[in-house]
């Protein structure tokens, strides 16, 4: 059963740490506003209330994730990568596990990458802004889904890389080459937004579960060292959204052209 007092103390802990995270930002903003810019902001009271909403919202959001999703998601990542999930107890575990055996892990990586990205608050923020700035040409959900597809593919490929034990930088190099080629062909207005979407995807919701996945894989796959091979999933998750967002823009241009013909 849920114990009210423990829920409350959990809430105040989370609130405290969120306030601590926001404090430097508030100090910088207020400092510059008062000391350098020296001009009043329109609707002060509304802005302050907005900040209160953000802090309160983020605290509730984090606390809810910690109650409902993180423990389950993290233990799931550990269980799916464990060797006794892959083999029946009477089966002999080979010294080298073929990479196809981990198909549930790849599926889980792709599904969890997509679903956590769709819920990522900072991505929602950027999508709302992009929609406003582009005058509605860029759809909020269109952008979010293309980013989520990129993360999904990135994390699945990243999990495969950990299982296969390939060097990280060859994958990243190949990804960069694709990004550079796409930059040349993609519509000019989408390029900065696409570059940004790489950085915003991995935040509050995605990082904890993906980290657990990477560590779980690197510590259970025979021959991998969790210290050295567990990293890299976040890098994959930041690289592939650039490719899918530029791809999405390219597709819409082609579609538009076809309709004109």
């Amino acid at each position: 059963m849920i114990d009210l007092s423990s829920v409350l103390s959990h809430f105040f802990d989370t609130l405290g740490s969120t306030v601590r995270d926001v404090l430097p930002i508030v100090i910088i903003i207020f400092g510059f506003q008062l000391a350098v810019l020296r001009r009043p902001v329109a609707n002060w009271d509304k802005v302050v209330l907005g900040f209160v909403y953000v802090v309160l919202g983020l605290s509730l959001f984090l606390m809810g994730l910690e109650l409902a999703l993180f423990p389950l998601g993290e233990s799931m990542a550990a269980q799916l990568t464990a060797l006794d999930f892959l083999f029946e107890s009477d089966e002999a575990i080979p010294a080298q596990v073929p990479w196809e055996e981990y198909y549930w892990v790849y599926l889980f990586s792709a599904a969890i990458g997509f679903s956590t990205t769709v819920a990522e608050p900072s991505l929602i923020a950027v999508a709302i802004k992009a929609n406003q700035v582009s005058g509605g040409t860029i759809k909020v959900n269109g952008l979010r889904i293309s980013v989520a597809l990129g993360v999904s593919f990135g994390i699945a490929l990243g999990s495969y890389r950990i299982v296969a034990g390939d060097p990280l930088h060859y994958y990243i190099l190949a990804g960069y080459i694709v990004v550079v080629v796409q930059t040349y062909f993609a519509p000019k207005t989408i390029v900065p937004l696409a570059y940004d979407s790489g950085g915003v995807t991995t935040s509050t919701v995605t990082v904890p579960i993906v980290t657990a996945l990477g560590l779980g894989l690197a510590s259970t796959v025979p021959g991998r060292n969790p210290m050295l091979d567990g990293f890299g999933l976040i890098a994959f998750a930041s690289l592939f959204p650039m490719i899918t967002v530029m791809g999405y823009a390219q597709l819409s241009v082609w579609k538009g052209r076809k309709e004109l013909d």
Binding site: V41, G50, V54, L56, G57, L60, G64, A68, I128
Partner: peptide, 23 residues
């Protein structure tokens, strides 16, 4: 309970975003 908090939290965050952070 966690899911309820996540839903309320996300809603507040987005409200605050447009009222405070963006402006």
């Amino acid at each position: 309970l966690g899911l309820l908090l996540v839903v309320i939290g996300l809603t507040f965050f987005i409200f605050g975003l447009e009222m405070g952070l963006f402006p």
